[in-house]
Design a protein around this nucleic acid. Structure first.
Lengths: 231, 231
DNA sequence: GTTCACTAAGTTGTAGACAATTGGTACACC
DNA sequence: GGTGTACCAATTGTCTACAACTTAGTGAAC
């Protein structure tokens, strides 16, 4: 019994193969929480839900497994990968290295136009926090990450970061909904922006790492309070 | 026309699905150079080469594409991914972050038994360089990387590192065959071991990063001399 | 009452056939 | 002579059927 009756995927959106659409649909379902962690993904059910053949569903699951969003046990089917708190912390630790690298590169190569863009983003972030618009603040943080990756021009790091963030999205969500979290993290984000704008690579990297260290501590605090939900 | 007529993969080694065997076989073929960069991987040819059905081959290609060893263009097939020099440098930059993290963690959590193990490895490395056994030296370097990852206990970073190293194996190979390269890199490796043995996380991370910076410079030097081979 | 083997339902793994797309080639047309 | 179009071969994308595996449930033997 699948959680939701997602209406049939639009077939052949354009030149793209059908399997790409199904992958996108299931991926969205996982990151949006329509599929719960550890939930079984039975191929026959997905066939009915998305109106695709089993071969297509199967290819999609293989792809999602390679992305780390799905666990596939031989002969025992696929299920939504449940990322434990420890794994989430590991992911943030890896992000420290990668986002630090991107911030450093961004500070080295940023153009005047991009600096102007970041200045505006900084103002928007501060405004959102000021007004208590948590959703908007959260969205702007994602935009900031995108901007830094884009400015850094580091395709390899960017690709890995996208995968990792998708995997840990649930923990990130819980974290961003902690009361008072925005007030703590906003200055950290501003510090990152300032360092990049000032074209100081080392300071930018340090600011990113400091921010993510604070994220790890916050994750530990939540996890310790809630306890780890078993599968 | 595939490069080699690898005899049929042993079917159903144990409980493992056939696709796992095919993935391993093709992966080996790519990293060992049996398949050249940019070489087309036509599904029908692979079916004949490995004696598996096209569905199996297809799944294997999807998995390898996610691993970054294969490029798959919609309706246009798969080919061995050709990693450019710039991409290889990006990969090493990412490794700086990840291997630095692992070395730092390893230095924090290393046990006495593991220290003894690293001492022996250090002696073996120095002996191999002394005797000019480049193959053995190269092998021991890989062992060192494994040991550090294992001691660090960082599964996430380790998994990413394995993927990245597989992608750049061709550049790494060229690099390790540069005359005089071992003499330069051996002291760097020893410095890494010493810092970890001394249980000094920051020094260990710095030593790893210094080593990889030297790798990047060496890559640039080779690449500049040889020029980049176009696809 | 417990344990083991067997059976049957449910689910995944594999295979081969068919459909759709791409890229090149020959031919007509301007 | 250059250009556009229609065909054809090669290759990938998708579908359906069948085989193999896992798991839970039933019943007999100890």
């Amino acid at each position: 019994m699948t959680a939701m009756g997602s209406e049939q995927v639009t077939r052949r959106r354009d030149g793209q193969p059908a399997v790409a659409d199904v992958v996108a649909a299931i991926r969205d379902g996982i990151v949006n929480g329509d599929y719960a962690p550890s939930q079984r993904l039975v191929e026959a059910d997905l066939v009915e839900a998305y109106g695709a053949s089993r071969a297509v569903i199967r290819s999609a699951l293989v792809e999602l497994a390679a992305d780390g969003l799905v666990d596939r046990l031989p002969n025992r089917g696929a299920r939504v990968r449940a990322v434990t708190l420890d794994e989430a912390i590991e992911i943030v630790e890896v992000r420290m290295g990668l986002e630090g690298l991107c911030a450093s590169k961004a500070a080295s190569s940023i153009t005047d136009a991009q600096i102007e863009d970041l200045r505006k983003l900084r103002a928007d972030i501060l405004a959102a926090v000021e007004r208590g618009e948590l959703m908007e603040y959260s969205r702007l943080n994602r935009v900031l990450d995108q901007r830094i990756e884009q400015i850094s021009g580091h395709a390899t790091a960017t690709a890995i970061l996208h995968r990792l963030r998708a995997q840990a999205v649930r923990h990130q969500f819980r974290l961003s909904h902690q009361p008072g979290r925005a007030v703590v993290s906003a200055p950290e984000h501003v510090a990152i922006i300032d360092a990049i704008i000032a074209r100081e690579p080392d300071r930018a990297e340090a600011a990113v790492r400091a921010h993510l260290r604070s994220v790890i501590e916050a994750l530990r605090a939540i996890g310790g309070a809630h306890g780890q939900r078993a599968s």
